[in-house]
């Protein structure tokens, strides 16, 4: 799979990572290289094979419906780059 710069920029936007023109150009090559290398999986016959959905052969544990957490706004806000009155503050979202 050969990716072009437009694709690199689209993927970077999806991943919310800013890329400079320089970066886009070099990433184009690197990503294409990696994607081409992984394409060897096409050689493998996977007809009737299920994708791996669990690594461990156990059931999903369920917990009781009891409030055991929360009420720790101090811990929640402690590392925030910007906060006010216990809200996280971010530059405004354009709806």
């Amino acid at each position: 799979m050969e990716v072009d710069e437009t694709t690199v920029r689209r993927i970077a936007r999806l991943a919310r990572i800013e890329v400079t023109d320089e970066e886009a150009a070099s990433l184009k090559g690197e990503l294409s290289g990696i994607l081409q290398w992984v394409e060897q999986l096409e050689e493998v016959n996977t007809d009737n094979v299920e994708p791996m959905t669990r690594v461990v052969p156990i059931a999903l544990k369920q917990r009781d419906d009891v409030v055991t957490d929360g009420e720790k706004v101090e811990d929640v806000i402690a590392n925030a780059p910007m906060s006010e009155d216990n809200f996280y503050v971010v530059p405004t979202v354009i709806e």
Partner: peptide, 8 residues
């Protein structure tokens, strides 16, 4: 595809 190969 990769997850199927993983099963194998």
């Amino acid at each position: 595809k990769a997850q199927k190969v993983r099963t194998l």
